[in-house]
Structure formats: structure tokens, C-alpha cells
Computed example of a mutant assay.
Amino acid sequence: MTHAGQVREWVAAARRENGPVDVLINNAGVIQVGPLDEMREPDFQRSLETHFWAAYHAINEVLPEVKARRARRIVNIASVGGKVAVPHLMPYSVGKFALVGFSNGLRSGVRRHGVTVTTLCPGLMRTGSHVNAEFKGRHEEEYAWFALTNGLPGLSVSGESAARAILSACARGDAELVLGLPAKFIVAVQALFPNLTADAMAVTNRWLLPSPGGIGPATATGAESRGRLPAVATALTDRAAAAANE
């Protein structure tokens, strides 16, 4: 997905198998979790390659076709992290911010050709991403807060319900959709009170999230970072990981 030539081959194979492209949905993500002090340039490069450049290459492969045929859809699945920069997820937010900006600009640029672009910004998702996310610094503590918040009912959205909402937004031709009440709330607060939001994020980073240390800039997967966190605490998101073959 991060190599333009391979994306071109994949689109060509899909076109041979299924015919002309009617809908393109860009949905890919990598997550590095940890303090900014432990992040390095390759972390940001990988995020941009996956979240922005992969979508950019896929869109460029289908854009001439969908413009010629008109009334076609492009959906870019970003994140609430592309609307509000969340501490300890900096590379992820940088990549998703790039995708949100590109997607929003693309919509206005191709609308006259009958192509509708929709930007999706889900909040916390129960998809099992905690298993393969990469954790830095005090990786067991980082894993604990990330896995717990991603699995709490009310805070997180299931993959199935998100998929239904995404397809509905695509069919309607929405410009943007933020998924989940907590995500809608934080995006609204950021828009209305940017200084307050920045201060709250700084307080969260300093007092509520783990400090640097541990394994430092090295990485450990979620499967390697469970530590003493009881399985019952992540039961819902573990179930989602098994269902999605994470």
C-alpha cells in the first residue's frame, strides 16, 4: 500500500476482476503509542506513508476513471486523531491530519466532475488494534491505557456499527462524518475552545499518561506489552481482535 507501483498493479487487478471502479474506500492505519520523547523520524515517515501517501496513490490510480464516469464516490477513513492532536499518538495524528486536509481539499477540487469525496473521522474503535499497535517507552503502561480506552462501551464504537455508518455516509455523499459521541464532543470543544483544549491535552500528557523511560524508542507490540493487565479488562476489544483476525 505504500508503494505506488504495487498500488497500480492492485487497482489494475481489481478492475480486471470486477470491472470499472465505482467506489474507492481508503482504510489503513498504523499506530505508534508512546511519549513524544521516544518517537523518531522513521515513526513519522511510516505514518505519513501509510495514512497519506497510500491513499494519495490509490486515489490517483482511479481518479481519471471516476471523473470520466461521474457520480462516483471516494471515501477516506481518517480519525478523530486527524482533527485533534492526541498526546502519545503524535506520528498517528500527523499522518491522519495530512489525510484529513488532503481529503477535504480533494472534495472541492473534484466536485465539478461529479465525484463525491467523504472524510470519515472515527473516534475510539473496538477493532483489536491494541494487539498489533506499537508501544514505546513504558510499554506496559502505554498498552494499559490504550487497550482500556479502546474497549470501553460508550467510549468506543464497534467495527460493525462503524462500517454501517461509513457506507451510509458514502451513499449520502456527506462531506465529513465524525463517529462516536466522545469524538464529536472533543472535535466540537477543539473548534470552540482551541486554547482550552491545548491546555487540557498538556495536562493529560504531563499528569495522566506514562512518562518516558522503559524500553525508550524501541518498540513492542501489544501482544508483548500486556503485562499484568487482566484479560477481563480487555475482553470486548480482544473479542474484536479475534473476529478481525488481528
Rank of each mutant, 00 (worst) to 15 (best):
S108I: 14
V100D: 02
V80W: 00
R73A: 01
R107F: 09
A85Y: 07
Y92H: 11
G105H: 13
S103N: 15
V80G: 10
V110W: 03
V100T: 13
V75C: 08
G105Y: 14
L106Q: 13
V75I: 07
F97I: 04
V75S: 10
Y92L: 01
G101F: 08
F102D: 08
G101W: 03
P87M: 10
A78Q: 05
A98E: 04
L89W: 06
F102I: 15
F102K: 02
R72P: 05
P87K: 10
R73V: 01
G81V: 05
L99A: 07
A85D: 12
F97L: 10
R107M: 07
H88C: 13
S79P: 09
S108E: 13
V84I: 10
N76H: 14
N76W: 05
V84E: 00
G95I: 07
A98R: 09
S108K: 12
V100Y: 03
A85C: 12
L106H: 11
L106S: 13
K96S: 04
V94Y: 04
V75R: 09
H88L: 09
R107L: 09
P91F: 01
V80T: 07
M90W: 04
V110N: 02
G95L: 06
L89M: 08
M90T: 10
P87N: 11
V110C: 11
A85F: 13
L99D: 06
G82R: 00
K83D: 02
V86Y: 15
I74A: 08
H88I: 01
N76E: 12
N76Q: 14
S108C: 05
V94K: 03
P87I: 11
H88D: 05
M90K: 03
V80Y: 01
G101C: 07
S79D: 06
R72C: 12
S93Y: 04
G101I: 15
R72Y: 07
A71I: 06
S93R: 01
V75M: 05
A78K: 00
A78Y: 00
L106A: 12
K83C: 10
R111Y: 11
I77F: 15
L99P: 03
V86K: 13
A85I: 13
P87V: 12
V84R: 01
P91K: 01
G105C: 10
V75W: 08
S93N: 15
L89T: 01
A71E: 12
N76Y: 06
K96T: 11
S93T: 14
I74D: 07
M90H: 10
S103I: 15
R73S: 00
L106P: 13
V75Q: 10
M90V: 03
G81Q: 04
G82Q: 11
S103A: 15
L106W: 13
F102S: 08
P87L: 09
R73Q: 05
A98T: 14
S79T: 03
I74R: 08
A71C: 13
S103P: 15
V110E: 00
M90R: 06
G109H: 08
K96M: 04
S79Y: 08
A78H: 01
S93G: 15
I74Y: 02
L89A: 06
A85P: 03
V94Q: 00
S79G: 07
S93F: 10
R111F: 03
K96Q: 10
A98Q: 11
V100I: 04
I74Q: 02
K96E: 09
V110I: 03
V110R: 00
